[in-house]
Design a protein around this nucleic acid. Sequence first.
DNA 1: CGTGGTCAAGCGGTA
DNA 2: TACCGCTTGACCACG
Length: 314
Amino acid sequence: MIIRLGYVAISLVLNITASKTITYTNYNKIGKEAGYKKLDILIRENFAKLKEILKYNYKNHIHFYRLSHNLIPLATHHNVDFDYLKPYQQLWQEIGNLSKQYDIRLDTHPDQFCVLNSPRQEVVQNSIVMLEFHQQIFHAMQIDGKAVLHVGGCFNNKEKAIKTFIRNFKKLDQKIQNIIILENDDKVFGVKDVLYICETLNIPMVLDYHHYKCHNDGEDLKEYLPRILATWSHENLRPKMHFSSPKSKKEFRSHSDYIDPLAFIDFLELLRPFNTDIDIMLECKAKDYALFTLIAYLKYKTNYHFLDETTFKV
DNA sequence: CGTGGTCAAGCGGTA
DNA sequence: TACCGCTTGACCACG
């Protein structure tokens, strides 16, 4: 099986981000004209930084990267009526072209305020607007991108919360449904729950190993992995998984700066029998530093065959 | 110049 | 009950 590694949003090596933003309060304070102008400047800066990051990823053979939704500040704010597509069509296109030319898979992650199964209608409506945003930018880039979503809240009744998610998902535009993939979380919806939803809706599941460690119902991953992998069978993309290490025993849920290499190797051994190519996103505070540190260890301590700097055969 | 509080938004968990 | 983490940064008032 061939494993590719990715990291999230910020390159610490380059020390740049493509997610400079403006608060709504500040945007409001400076007036509409100045607000638009500020947004336009920020967006163009963010695009420029993103191009630098993609170029850097390419040079370092990183084929997998999560875009920050902050690329477009206030994109989904209900009081900010700003077209983030048309004026930037050229730029979206350029990012999409770089993604293809450099062979870098791009995914996104709606933030914690995107709760599709909320009992509050306004929260659901906001969530749909956010998901629309993700769909539209993938469309503008003309790439087959996916947005990794959590199921949402529990609201004291998990069964009901799952039903609400399924019902609300089915009401979404088909275009939006097509970009959503679901991840197990660290508190409420475990592997079993998310797999059930994914199989019901016929959408891919992202296994988050750290979340599984934080919250599970005693599921044996060996049993569940074939079904998790099968949720990807109708996609052109490789199955995606998340891996991170706990900060400490006490703060287990928090992400550590770096990956524990032995735990990572154990995880790969768990995956080995299924012999499937997988993209693994590393979620660490130290971002790309953590990725390179892990790779250095793997090169030193294992006999994995490296096809390029970050791609290897197990 | 550095630090802490605030900013659009939701949840569940912890002290 | 009030704050924390998830995501992740800007900018102000204050010392």
